[in-house]
Design a binder for these strands. Structure first.
Length: 431
RNA sequence: GCGAGAUUGGUGAAGGGGUUAACACGGCGGAUUGUGGUUCCGUUAUGCAAGGGUUCGAAUCCCUUAUCUCGCCCCA
């Protein structure tokens, strides 16, 4: 038997409804924010992902799905959403659009070649947003407000924001040098991973889990002391705008992003799901004013975030939150014998065209098992099509909730269903 | 990339070398030949993740591979 590739999963049944619901809520919210939808290719030229990401290039390359196409081109399945959107922004010259800033949202699969474990897959899905062309701190706050409002709309409690500022390039470079100078004499006191990070990515030493409690960490230089006036001002304004929205946030100086193109605001949004631990962090994002330029576009400020779909749905399940209305089956059609199937099929089709949700038995089940099936589907009406109905053009409809049975002529059928489905006061319709 | 534990019908599972793979749910058929959700009866895995090996005999022991779960690493 052929099995699914490691770290992938099939979206079927209930999961399908959950994914569609979450995407729908997000899509409707993005309409209200007046953002445009964008979909970029699932694979791109490898160089898009393997450059512009600074010191962590080796790590990035190790975990991407790379392949050579038949034309000998190096291709990579996208490991995240931002790079492709930036590429599209540049290639389609969106910076010349009359509607600026350019505000975009996306939803789709991302691919990382990692060992699967709790909440982590090789193909996973992200909802994300990118805004180009505004360096206004109000836009940072708007971007932060989107996942906050989204998680609240879905019903999650205790939605909290952690923010930090990495400053502009000047501030960030100064801080990085200060960190290296500080840690250099203490290298031996750090864990082996941090020794590695010292060379590849000194900022990340700050959120090391192993060394977290050590004194050298607590006395390490603070980013805020290295922010220049422009960066400080930007960060303060972001906080003022968050205050204006009554969004609860905490400044976390150890919140960092590894990649070089991040500037100013970085943030994470978490919910408080019982027993969910670190998985409570559902969303991450920040400002990346340098990335467009690094990918050969015009210098353009940008800010965005991404939310992992799988973890989000798991959180909603943990909290027992609703995923919208269940699909209602309006009519279950039972042909009595195979002689009745064509007529039943045609009638069912007509009802579907009139907007009703209809199921027609295609397994030639017995009357008994058809009624059982109609029950399982919670069908509102059962319509029995037999010789009598065909000859007399009078249909037998049974309200499967109240057990009332009706005789209805073909001409009255649609009016009858409209009336009874909208004004039904049986228990099933009022749960 | 490293480590631990799993994988038996549609589903939940029992069985840890001996003949016919328990039990339950579900499904299907019937009692009731156009009216179900209760009850009763019948039936429902030529097969135990895949392949190979040991054995008179393997779901059971060994090897390989795949996938799943949970850690480590990493997390753009």
């Amino acid at each position: 038997m052929i099995q699914k590739p490691k770290g992938t999963y099939d979206i079927t049944g209930d999961m399908g409804n959950k994914v569609r619901y979450v995407e729908h809520v997000f899509s409707a919210l993005m309409d209200r924010y007046h953002y445009d939808y964008i979909a970029t290719p699932l694979f791109e030229n490898s160089s898009l992902f393997h450059r512009g990401v600074g010191d962590s290039t080796d790590i990035v390359r190790k975990e991407t799905y790379d392949f050579t196409d038949r034309g000998g081109r190096a291709m990579t399945l996208r490991p995240e959403g931002t790079a492709g959107v930036v590429r599209s922004y540049i290639e389609n010259k969106m910076y010349g659009d009359i509607n600026l800033p350019k505000k975009l949202w996306y939803f789709g699969s991302m691919f990382r070649y990692e060992r699967p474990q709790a909440g982590r897959f090789r193909e996973f899905r992200q909802l994300g947003v990118e805004v180009f062309g505004s360096s206004d701190p109000m836009m940072d706050a708007e971007i932060i407000s989107i996942p906050v409002n989204f998680l609240r709309l879905l019903g999650l409690k205790g939605v909290k924001v952690h923010i930090n500022s990495l400053g502009d390039k000047e501030s960030r470079d100064a801080y990085r040098e200060a960190l290296k100078a500080y840690f250099e004499p203490h290298l031996e006191e750090l864990c082996s991973d941090c020794k590695e990070r010292f060379h590849t990515n000194p900022l990340r030493i700050l959120d090391c889990k192993v060394d977290h409690e050590k004194d050298i960490m607590k006395q390490a230089p603070k980013m805020e002391d290295y922010l220049n006036d422009v960066s400080k001002d930007h960060f303060n304004k972001v906080q003022e705008y968050l205050d204006a929205l009554n969004i609860e946030y905490t400044v976390n100086p150890n919140l960092v992003r590894g990649l070089d193109y991040y500037t100013h605001t970085v943030f994470e949004v978490e919910a408080s799901v019982e027993g969910f631990g670190s998985q409570n962090v559902l969303c991450g994002g920040g400002r990346y004013d340098r990335l467009v330029e690094m990918l050969d576009g015009p210098s353009t400020p940008a800010v965005g975030f991404a939310i992992g779909m799988e973890r989000l749905i798991t959180a909603l399940e943990y909290e027992n939150l609703s995923f919208g209305e269940e699909k209602q089956l309006d009519v279950y059609v039972i042909p009595v014998t195979s002689e009745d199937k064509e007529y039943a099929f045609g009638l069912g089709n007509a009802l579907r065209l009139s907007g009703f949700t209809v199921e027609i038995d295609s397994l030639n089940r017995s009357m008994k098992s058809n009624f059982k099936q109609a029950d399982r589907y919670h069908a509102h009406f059962v319509m029995i099509i037999g010789e009598t109905e065909r000859n007399d053009s009078i249909l037998t409809l049974k309200n499967n909730h109240t057990k009332e049975e009706f005789k209805v002529t073909i001409d009255q059928l649609i009016d009858f269903l409209d009336e009874h489905l909208s004004s039904c006061d049986c228990d099933d319709c009022h749960e």
